[in-house]
Design a protein around this nucleic acid. Structure first.
Length: 211
DNA sequence: TATTGGATCGCC
DNA sequence: GCGATCCAATAG
């Protein structure tokens, strides 16, 4: 029976924490993007468990969204976005980095939420090893950083978010304020303020943190 | 087959 | 502020 510090206060058994089910993701994307804040991402690798509280997300919605990979219709790369909700869409970008997305909405409609930043909880030692540096606040404060820290790459593309390897559980972190702003790194669709994050949280990614 | 640009990061 | 680095999409 594995014991783990999910929220730093008391050790609980990871087996007893109910996974968040696929129905959570099969809902309006902007709602899911906000309700994901405060939940805990669990990454299990063999005997190791890495967890982090989601503190920053971005929504990508439909083929009409110019910033979405699905803008312009289905391709081999974006096909997971067209599938049912509750699966991971993972892609490689800028020749260096992976990004983790959760597919939302009904099958056939391309939408997803990009996970942009985590507050590291369990497995910090392994995350530090994976990232090759020691500053806790810089471990998972960006989409590429958190994938490296949690050993998430394209081999997990299309995996169920109800799997042991990768899933979500509810945190006990509730009383926060949600801020929103323009999405990061997109050249089009700037008018959509679909980046959501915990107000004043130190683990949010750096660019344009406030306002 | 070639070219171009991208939902980034870390170092200068 | 800029280079690394390479995949995906588009054009030819």
């Amino acid at each position: 029976m594995r014991k783990i510090n999910i929220e730093s206060s008391q050790a609980v058994s990871i087996d007893k924490l109910p996974k968040i089910g696929p129905e959570f993701f099969n809902r309006p994307t902007l709602l899911v993007a906000q309700e994901l804040l405060g939940t805990v991402l669990v990454r299990q690798i063999d005997e190791s468990i890495l967890t982090g509280r989601i503190v920053e997300t971005e929504a990508y919605f439909g083929e009409d969204d110019p910033a979405s990979h699905a803008h312009g219709g289905p391709t081999p790369r974006n096909r997971i976005m067209y599938g049912p909700a509750g699966f991971a869409y993972i892609y490689f970008i800028y020749g260096n980095h992976h990004c983790l997305n959760f597919v939302t909405e009904a099958e056939g409609f391309p939408a997803a939420v990009l996970i942009r930043a985590l507050h590291p909880l369990a497995g910090v030692k392994i995350m530090r090893r994976n990232r090759g540096q020691a500053n806790l606040a810089d471990l998972t404060n960006g989409p590429g950083k958190l994938c490296l820290a949690l050993e998430i790459d394209k081999s997990l593309n299309g995996i169920s978010l109800y799997s042991d390897e990768l899933h979500l559980v509810r945190g006990d972190y509730h009383w926060f304020e949600i801020s929103n702003g323009p999405r990061v790194g997109v050249s089009q669709g700037k008018n959509r303020r679909w980046r959501f994050f915990l107000k004043d949280d130190p683990y949010v990614s750096n660019p344009i943190r406030s306002k």
